[in-house]
Design a binder for these strands. Structure first.
Ligand SMILES: [Mn+2]
Ligand SMILES: [Mn+2]
Ligand SMILES: [Zn+2]
Ligand SMILES: [Zn+2]
Lengths: 133, 133
DNA sequence: TAGTAAATTTGTAATCATTACAATTTTATA
DNA sequence: TATAAAATTGTAATGATTACAAATTTACTA
């Protein structure tokens, strides 16, 4: 994955900030909040503004290379994976992990006559690590 | 459904405000925001405070007679139905409708060794009414 | 290469939902 | 009725997000 190329292919000029932010999303795969991205990158990019993080993520979402995950209010999280998948969140340590999902398994006969553009499946509980402590 | 009794059975003293707020949730079934509940009831309960709406909904959630629905950030919605079900939201008119779901249909072999306490399934798209306009 | 326009980044102020908290009012109890 | 406990209220504080204008960087042209 060449990130500057990937951004350019998706109609995004690969500025330094954009490259670093997407690089973080793509390599960490940790569903970070804006604040975590900012706090992580700010020491390495001293001029970085939190507004740039917001602007950049909005751009990524608009261009379709980033998705948002809203499990609980007051924290939007971002994800470099944009294909359909679900999420499990541990309510002890807060980790969010991806879940492959077969959406055909959802029996949605109730929903004829509607178009479905987005599907969010969020499971919340305790992860193995937190259960065995 | 006798709402004062239902509140009392769930260890909630049935004050006038609590009765009116639960009555609204239960009869409208419209997954309202705090603001909608407040704006609807305030004309009929002139002394009502928005803080009371927040406090009351928090109490209902703690006591297990109300659930929250967070599909998009910056709007928590409330639901008098606490049994497992999913939601469809129309991104044109904003209506949120319940979807019966068989959660066994989700193939979650990836998730052994975790406990699942809560499941959220949110579908977003266009409802029939908005498609045919 | 210098000059200019466009795009991007930045910092600050504004907004909006929610929470904190103390004062007031209502309810329960002696 | 007097007193304590519970519930409600209004205001201030918080925190995430957005608006916006200034500053900086980049792209393009003469
Ligand atoms: Mn993910
Ligand atoms: Mn519902
Ligand atoms: Zn955990
Ligand atoms: Zn609609």
């Amino acid at each position: 994955m060449n990130i500057p190329n990937y951004l350019a292919e998706n109609d995004i000029k690969p500025s330094y900030q954009r490259i670093r932010i997407f690089e973080y999303l793509y390599h960490e795969m940790n569903h970070p909040t804006v604040d975590l991205i900012y706090k992580t990158l700010a020491p390495e990019i001293p001029t970085l503004s939190k507004t740039t993080v917001y602007n950049t993520l909005k751009l990524f979402v608009d261009k379709g290379i980033t998705s948002t995950v809203t499990i609980e209010n007051n924290e939007v999280r971002y994800d470099a994976i944009v294909t359909h998948h679900g999420h499990f969140k541990c309510n002890v340590c807060g980790i969010i992990v991806d879940i492959p999902l077969n959406f055909n398994q959802l029996n949605l006969n109730e929903l004829k006559d509607v178009t479905i553009e987005q599907t969010q499946v969020h499971l919340i509980g305790k992860c193995n690590k937190c259960l065995t402590i």
